[in-house]
Write a protein that binds this DNA or RNA. Structure first.
Length: 443
RNA sequence: GACCUCAUCGUCUAGCCUGGUCAGGACUCAAGAUUUUCAUUCUUGCAACGCGGGUUCAAAUCCCGCUGGGGUCGCCA
């Protein structure tokens, strides 16, 4: 049975690249009816933090990547020491200042990478150098090879070794990880051999680059999954975007659910070259998912963000929110945008600034006339409001557009937005009339 | 520097394995249609096989070299 793992170290937030590694592992496991294990690599006790672990598991859950098994390396130190002892006894390793170190043999190490094909290393290149960067030479004048630390002097196990022991003991069949691990692979293969374990299959996936094609870092954009979550991206959209970074089902289809992607998934189809992250494309995909959502579901999604921003309380008008969401569904790619564009609907003390009023360029008399007419519109809905509005325009022989734009401007503070009458309905009679009146006063 | 690795529009990619297609799709951008504005939607357009050799009737596709990018060289993971 196929068994894969995602092995983050809780020394920071779940990185977008890590999420993609987890995603590929998850898709492979599910596509093969295999299992997906979450292994916490917390051997560095000083850098590992409980809150980071929580953040990572929260993010994974949010993305919908559930695991079948879970364990922490910090609970397994005895196990690693036990196997290190075996290596000591067999003579494959030796002690050095309290550390257990694997003797590096001089040989060629080959492995078949499921994505890249055969990769060959020669351990003769793993040389030790002095501080000046010169190779150290042995008595015969050959470069001294760099041996691998298995157990550190403080008794804690080293990364590579835990990784090998765990992968072997938990019977991981496929190690799917970032290509930054390629150079670790030959060393780990030597460990499998020394331990007498069968090595798993390896697949090294390409890295994600930032928009400029450089290394992903906080400086060049959001890197933590939690940041995307906070910005109001939909998890299914992020997942959809991430799977497309370095993988394609082969045809023209791009929008797909995790389940349908799993049906088409194959490691063979993962690309070899690194992919640059594109916020534009992520936003476009997110917009597609936003538009697919029902008004009810979208209102559910949006409500917590509005609550957090203090725009609505626990007892908010649900029907009204659904109405707002309906109007803005095609006008938002993410929550930040939604919040920005709908702010005027929630603010009580909204007042059109002088600039806005000036560009509205309509007489105060006209605003107050409209306010009076709309005050009587009953019920205060799109149809009734529009009828009154058109009547008003007719009476004064004004072109609708000459009236619509200034009014939108003073009602919303913006010259673009949803239909004016729909806007008025969700704004409500009270705010609409009040804003028209205050515009009339200032004009 | 050494070793490993990668290379199709600005970006994500299909095609490469099993040579022969106007090199296809998506994002972005531009233009048009629809819309009271904007957005959505639809239509159209711009835009790529890094370079140089080979093999072949024929190369994006196979081989070699170059160039360029990325990764690793920790008692971090």
């Amino acid at each position: 049975m196929v068994k894969v793992r995602f092995a983050p170290s809780p020394t920071g937030f779940l990185h977008i690249g890590g999420a993609r590694t987890a995603l590929f592992n998850y898709m492979y496991a599910r596509s093969q009816q295999g299992s997906f294990v979450l292994r916490v690599e917390d051997t560095d006790r000083s850098r590992s933090r409980e809150e980071y672990l929580n953040e990572i598991t929260d993010s994974l859950h949010w993305l919908g990547l559930d695991w079948d098994e879970f364990y922490k390396q910090s609970d397994r130190f005895d196990l690693y020491r036990e196997h290190a002892k075996r290596l000591l006894d067999s003579g494959a390793a030796y002690e050095d200042n309290g550390a257990v170190v694997l003797k590096m043999p001089r040989q060629e190490v080959k492995f078949f990478d499921l994505i890249r094909g055969e990769v060959v290393f020669d351990t003769s290149n793993f040389v030790q150098r002095d501080e000046a960067g010169n190779n150290l030479l042995d008595s015969e004048g050959r470069p001294v090879l760099k041996d691998e630390v298995l157990i550190k002097a403080d008794g804690s196990p080293a990364y590579s070794f835990c990784c090998v022991v765990d992968d072997a003991l938990t019977e991981i069949t496929h190690v799917i990880r970032g290509e930054d691990h390629i150079p670790n692979t030959p060393k780990q293969i030597l460990m499998y051999q020394a331990l007498g374990f069968k090595a798993p299959k390896f697949a090294h996936i390409p890295m994600i680059l930032n928009e400029e094609g450089g290394k992903m870092s906080k400086r060049t954009g959001a890197v933590a999954v939690s940041e995307y979550r906070a910005k109001g991206f939909l998890p299914e959209a992020l997942v959809n975007y991430l799977m497309l970074l370095g993988w394609s089902p082969g045809g023209d289809q791009e929008l797909m659910t995790l389940d349908s992607a799993i049906k088409k998934f194959s490691i063979k189809k993962i690309n070899k070259s690194s992919a640059a992250f594109s916020m534009d494309k992520l936003r476009w995909i997110n917009g597609q998912y936003v538009r697919q959502k029902s008004d009810q579901a979208l209102a559910d999604f949006v409500a917590p963000f509005l609550e957090k921003g203090g725009w609505i309380g626990k007892d908010y008008d649900r029907k009204k929110l659904e109405g707002i969401v309906k109007l803005y569904k095609t006008r938002m790619a993410d929550i930040d945008e939604f919040l920005e564009r709908t702010r005027y609907l929630f603010e009580d003390e909204f007042k059109a600034g002088e600039e806005v009023l000036k560009s509205a360029n309509l007489s105060g008399e006209c605003f107050s006339g409209l306010a009076r007419v709309l005050e009587e519109a009953a019920p205060f809905n799109t149809a009734a409001v529009e009828a009154r509005f058109r009547e008003f325009a007719d009476q004064r022989a004004m072109k609708m557009s000459d009236l619509v734009h200034p009014v939108r401007l003073i009602l919303t503070g913006s010259d673009v937005g949803p239909g004016l009458f729909e806007t008025m309905e969700v704004l409500g009679r009270e705010k609409t009339v009040k804003r028209l009146k205050s515009a009339a006063e200032i004009s």
